[in-house]
Amino acid sequence: MELFGDYFKQLYDTSGWNFVIFYDQVEWQRFVEAIWTTIKLIIACLIFSLIVGFVGAWAQGAQSKIVRNVIAGYIQFFRNTPPFVQILFFYFVLGNLTPSYDAGGYQEAYIGSFGWAVISLGFFAGAFNTEIFRSGIEAVPESTVEAASALGYTRLQSYIHVVFPLAFRVCLPALNNNLVNLLKTTTLAYGIAVPEMMYTANQIWSDNVNVPEMMIVLFFFYVGLVAILVYGMSRWERSMKIPGYG
């Protein structure tokens, strides 16, 4: 670590490339915190979007026409409006309507900017997940469900053991596409001052006037994250592939 820091300090002294985060303890702390915030944000959005997708897909199979229409409207709304405006809408409009508490002299909202980013991006990606899960469930033939019930499975058992495992395998590729998109979309949380990587990088280059260096770091960070996710997902896809089916 010492050596690492010394190298970048020397690089700055000799060439002027200021990778301040690698030799300055304070900036390094800031950077590491941003990494954690970003990863937490991604995981939280991911989980929330999956929950939204499950609930949405389930509700789309509902008997009530009103419920189905509401879900369809939700999907179209989130797919066809700018996600950045969605985030602003959630944070400024809904954030304004939700209660806050007295945090020693000033009003602190129960849901902060991080929370609103998760909710907004979760609903955005969830709109796609809903469609993905629904088509996955539709892909499981009625006759396979019938075979399960002929073997004495209850409706719930056949969902747990047959429909869901099959549907999940079917929609995994599409799901992965969406999750990669979601990862890139989390940068929009910048717009409501969530201290994630984009936002922190901006602060660091404002303080240290090292825009090009931080840009390089940003590119490495995000392209690297996407690469890791894509690699992991494609391995997972391969291991989940149903043998004998293309």
Binding site: A139, L166, V170, P173, A174, N177, Y245
Partner: peptide, 16 residues
Amino acid sequence: LLPVARQQRSQAMIER
């Protein structure tokens, strides 16, 4: 067995 599944997979690949 899975009439729609392969179509959906190829759709996902196109989208990817």
